[in-house]
Design a protein around this nucleic acid. Structure first.
Length: 304
DNA sequence: AAACGTCGACCCGCTATGTG
DNA sequence: CACATAGCGGGTCGACGTTT
């Protein structure tokens, strides 16, 4: 029901396995920098401004259009997770193809010591990255809108066409950043692909890498409830429950606010789902709404 | 259908770390 | 030593499963 801009996928779907790359191409010094610190100075002048923070989505104010691509996975998380205890899934896994050592050699000894740049080295392996993970040679690999679907628990994920994808292939993010620089992010593999904690950390990190360097977004920015909305909610509750029942409550709320402009708030008000509204009332019911009060949130109204 | 509980995802911004 | 970079804690929201 939400309006979502589908991102057109790239024709030369780079995915997985079949990326031929010549093993030891002479990496030009210029591009052969450690993937973990791919920054450096190809920086084309350009103000350092946005860098400190992720420049909250609104893009460098000045000239350009904010134009972001909102990408939603074709399949939801639950649908992509495989259950090895189910025979058909087990069969798929058994016949699945893994990507190769151009990412890293899964069977090789890990590099001694903890993996760097994470506070949870116990969750990730310190692998020696392969050629694909370190090569800047193939221009076509670096795209402005990299494809990515969040990691799900398990080495493989189920794709819409019924085949599996080795999630190892998603550990390497190659992209062309907003300044046109080629970037490689090599994210260490989880020691245990079934560990949700590791998967969560991986997702958090990876999404941030894409978010900070491209205009790709994975969901609309969450819009906090504003006082006008909360005032309405308060007025339409009796002892913390919708006066007219949830169904009409949700309908009326959206009739009143969806698409509406409110002074001081950016853009227009979003549609609020049943789940969103019940959660809002649950969160602030006991402490505020029941007492006839408007919820007061901790701080910063900055951009909303 | 509503209420309740759980969990994951995204963003902000702090801050450790690297770099010239 | 100033400054840029990127991981991640914390705040929020919303999806979804289960119970009432």
């Amino acid at each position: 029901m939400r309006k979502v801009i589908q991102l057109v996928t790239h024709p030369e779907d780079d995915t997985d396995s079949e990326i031929e790359l010549l093993p030891s191409k002479s990496l030009t010094k210029k591009f052969a920098r450690p993937a973990s610190k791919p920054n450096m100075k190809l920086i084309v002048a350009h103000h350092a401004d946005d860098s400190m923070f992720d420049a909250g989505d609104e893009e460098d104010s000045d000239n350009e259009q904010p134009k972001f691509s909102l990408v939603t996975p074709a399949m939801k998380r639950n649908q992509r997770i495989l259950d090895p205890s189910k025979p058909e899934h087990a069969a798929l896994i058994a016949s699945a193809t893994k990507v190769g050592t151009e990412y890293y050699d899964s069977d090789a000894q890990d590099v001694p010591g903890d993996v760097k740049d994470t506070s949870k080295p116990d969750l990730f392996r310190n692998v020696a990255w392969g050629s694909y993970a370190t090569s800047y040679d193939n221009e076509a690999e670096f795209v402005k809108e990299p494809e990515f679907t969040q990691f799900v628990p398990g080495r493989f994920e189920l794709l819409p066409d019924g085949t599996l994808r080795d999630q190892k292939s998603k550990l390497i993010i190659k992209l062309l950043d907003k300044a046109g620089r080629k970037r490689i992010f090599a994210n260490p593999p989880p020691r245990d692909w079934a560990s949700q904690e590791a998967i969560t950390a991986l997702n958090k990190r990876t999404v941030q890498q894409i978010r900070r360097n491209t205009n790709v977004r994975f969901r609309e920015v969450v819009r906090a409830y504003v006082p006008e909305e909360r005032r309405w909610i308060l007025e339409n509750l009796s002892s913390g429950k919708p006066t007219q029942g949830w169904k009409t409550f949700v309908e009326d709320f959206n009739k009143r606010f969806e698409g509406m402009k409110i002074a001081g708030a950016i853009g227009t008000r979003p549609y609020r789902s049943h789940s969103s509204l019940t959660k809002e009332v649950e969160r602030f019911g006991a402490d505020f709404y029941v007492k006839g009060l408007m919820p007061v949130t901790a701080r910063k109204g900055k951009k909303e």
